[in-house]
Design a protein around this nucleic acid. Structure first.
Lengths: 104, 104
DNA sequence: TTGACATATGCCGATAACGGAATATAGTGA
DNA sequence: TCACTATATTCCGTTATCGGCATATGTCAA
């Protein structure tokens, strides 16, 4: 799951699916990646449940299954307040400023 | 960055640092990992800025730098509403229920 | 059925990641 | 200085990953 999201191209594929269902070919065009690679990445994303496939004629429509991102979101949530709260680093900033002196 | 977080042990190390600064030895004890591995993981985390090191005598105190998680958080935020919004999957649930019938 | 299109799969080579064991470095106290 | 503790680094073997290419599978259209 975390691993699936760790790959840039996989994230790009997910991003491309935000707007809705998309054909493999459409994704290929969007990302300018070779088609076999896109298929392989879609397979990985599919295996971890981040994406779902629906066949329509000879094309396959992939769509996001964003609920599968919840583990990531939940893990991140533990840090969420700290990430946003810039006051956490205020003392660090002060220390750094003191260490460097006012004018370089 | 995403890669650093993709590793289970690295996530565990980060988790161990949530409560505050910690010695390498303390982390080793917490996670029951061999010390060289912990040091290596800390190096990786350090290189992407997720963690900061402070020397005190012969020990090194590592602490979180949670602001470095912001890229992850921002990327995830694009899906955030969908992840939480269970209504997104309502139609899926309905379809599944219809497909399975009421009583197995 | 044949041929064109859409997608998936298999195979290969290069490279990176991870774990393990040994060892190096650095600080501490006698 | 010497021994000891704490941490980092190196080397190595194994395994996973990714990209590229070729090819298989399946589907439409005529």
């Amino acid at each position: 799951m975390f691993n699936a999201v760790a790959d840039v191209h996989r994230r790009e594929i997910l991003d491309a699916l935000i707007t809705g269902e998309r054909t493999v070919g459409a994704i290929v065009d969007d990302l300018a990646l070779p088609q076999p690679q896109v298929s392989k990445h879609l397979r990985v994303l599919s295996e971890v449940g981040l994406v779902r496939c629906r066949a329509e004629g000879r094309r396959r429509l992939y769509r996001l299954e964003p609920a599968s991102l919840r583990p990531v979101q939940e893990w991140l949530a533990k840090y969420g307040r700290m990430v946003n709260d810039r006051l956490d680093r205020l003392d660090d900033y002060l220390k750094e400023l003191q260490g460097q002196g006012g004018t370089p």
